[in-house]
Design a protein around this nucleic acid. Structure first.
Lengths: 362, 362
DNA sequence: CTGAAAGCGCTTACAG
DNA sequence: CTGAAAGCGCTTACAG
């Protein structure tokens, strides 16, 4: 055994009566033809001495760590947690491991995370970020493939995967209009965030398509947080003229809004119909359950990992994933569809039992 | 530059006119005394050639990767996401990086994650797990320090950090009794999970201390999920005899319960007072906002990283963190305390505005 | 204070 | 099909 008491390739070779190279060849199946007999011997020897390949040594010698770096703005946010979850699952499907970084929405911290990941020789970087440019620049100039999520990369050397924000928001708004609501307002994210802007355009687009004009008094730009949605809700619902429906640009904001509505005694969907964006499982058990434009986390994850695994010389691509309008009760839909009558109180059908989602493609 | 076009120590040494060893000494400040002049030269040379130390090579040579492995059962769960968040922040404070693994509550997947992390030579493993024994065994037998979170390790070679479940649950239940509720039921996790059992004991303990007897009809063992809480809620609240208060063993379950209560038209806290456990920010904006036994994520993270950084020969310790009862409105408290009257509907004070928490130590 | 060199545990042309 | 050996980019005794 090595000086640190670890079992190495050498121990295996000795036990198997072969060279150490053969041990490697057996380990990296397919790299070199090995006779079945030798292979057997080596495999048995590995078992016998309890050999565990040292991934760090492999990485140094091979030039690949089989590790991806993931930077998210805030893991406490369900949306990013769900994204991280899907990415981790997909990565692991390909034998890749994820280095996790939470930037706490700080550009400085983001930069330092990317530097750290770069120093650790990650094979790729997944960046869900605030101040895209810097962080991406650091990685690409270190020749690390980058996929930017949730926004299109400024840097042409980086690929990106985004949700179809305009269509998603338009679909959500359209649905509210179809429910007969006319004063459909919107709670958006910060006006300087591209994602937020795109959802604003989608909201407006639905009105234009319907030959209607949105009322700007029902529009609020707020932080992408529960508190942001809560405050925007208090402000919108506490005004002289109030909307009868709201498109809300994120799940967190929608949850905050529901809290505000409950506090003000505004019934949802009775007096206020709501459709949100980026919904996770939290939307399904909120009071009332939220109709939402749900990202396909699995598809996003699949595309992201595929882009990262693609030949490094492939031109970085910008991909767009569709999102699904998942109907629940906050928009005024009867949900779940075809639910049997219940012996509940009068308003119980406004908050029907969670069940299988009805995903309608936008 | 090396064959892969990377800038290495050698390039720095050449540019600085020193040996490569000196470059290392400058890099690893303090390992060897270096004259200020040489130091300057080397630093300038690094800058000049754009040198980035290769973390993998450092890891192989030094035997330390400065990487920690984290295994959680399910990142989609807010509680684990908040934990991961705190751990990542604390790790990064010490220049450590986190390898993330989501076991999807599968023991097999857990095992394979730990094997992977072990092969990657992590300096420590943080395990928030389902089937503790196997995974911990794999790590400890590879001489990797382990800290088990949220449950005491079976393996005496592993340290652990747990929340004081008995006291937390007792405090929550006591609070409900103090509100004058007598039929205080409980929704717990699976009966074979130690954490769940401990919270059950806490619930019972509060009754005993008060000279009362709990009613087993108001007790439900359910999965630690929103759906688990939802179903348990439907079952408890749909029965002939119903509780007037519930201690709920997790935030997810509590959110599910609120959904069930709303659907059945049971007002919270009017007809049903609720206190949950393991609350995150989600509890603050639920309808109504949930009173919860809130873990001190920062303290848990700090202790965990400290244990991992401790001398490897230090005897593994089991540490317990207190939890705080955070009062909001679901228990029947006036919240926020001293809120000004609002011109809202009659029941608006039952769902007061979220504001600063009032943490009362248990 | 500085340098030459062994070693970390692998991969992978290069010979045979 | 198998082996001897260079190399991945560092750290760190060992000499000076």
């Amino acid at each position: 055994m090595g000086r640190r008491g670890r079992v190495t390739r050498e121990d295996v070779a000795r036990a198997a009566g072969t060279s150490t190279a053969v041990v490697s060849y057996v380990l990296n199946e397919g790299s070199r033809p090995i006779s079945p007999a030798t292979r057997e011997k080596v495999l048995r020897a590995m078992e016998e001495v309890g050999y565990r390949p040292n991934g760090i040594a492999r990485a140094l010698a091979s030039g690949s760590t089989r590790t991806l770096g993931l930077v998210v703005p805030e893991l406490g946010n369900q949306f990013f947690a769900a994204l991280a979850n899907a990415l981790e699952a997909e990565a692991s499907r390909h034998g890749l491991v994820l280095l996790l970084g939470d930037s706490a929405e700080s550009v400085d911290r983001e930069r330092s995370l990317v530097e750290t990941f770069s120093a650790r020789q990650v094979d790729g970087l997944i960046y869900v970020g605030v101040g895209a440019h810097d962080a991406v620049e650091i990685a690409t100039s270190a020749r690390i493939p980058v996929v930017v999520l949730d926004r299109v990369a400024d840097d042409e050397r980086a690929a990106s995967v985004v949700i179809d924000n305009v269509e998603g928001a338009a679909g959500a708004t359209r649905h509210l209009l179809e429910h007969g609501r006319r004063d459909v307002g919107a709670i958006l994210g910060p006006s300087e965030v591209p994602t937020s802007l795109a959802r604003f355009f989608g909201w407006r687009k639905a009105f234009e398509e319907a030959g209607l004009r949105p009322d700007d008094r029902f529009l609020q730009w707020a932080p992408f947080s529960k508190e942001g949605g809560y405050r925007a809700g208090l402000s919108l619902l506490g005004a002289e003229v109030v909307p009868d429906a709201l498109f809300v640009a994120s799940e967190d904001q929608a949850l905050g809004l529901l809290c505000a509505a409950a506090e003000l005694g505004v019934s949802v969907p009775g007096s206020l119909a709501v459709v949100s964006f980026d919904g996770t499982e939290a939307s399904r058990y909120s009071v009332p359950p939220l109709t939402t434009v749900a990202p396909r986390f699995d598809e996003i994850a699949r595309r992201t990992i595929d882009l990262l695994r693609a030949a490094p010389d492939a031109a970085p691509r910008a991909e767009t994933c569709a999102a699904d309008l998942v109907l629940r009760s906050s928009c005024g839909c009867q949900w779940p569809a075809g639910a049997p009558d219940r012996a509940g109180p009068p308003d119980s059908t406004e908050h029907p039992a969670p069940s299988d989602d009805e995903r309608s493609h936008l």
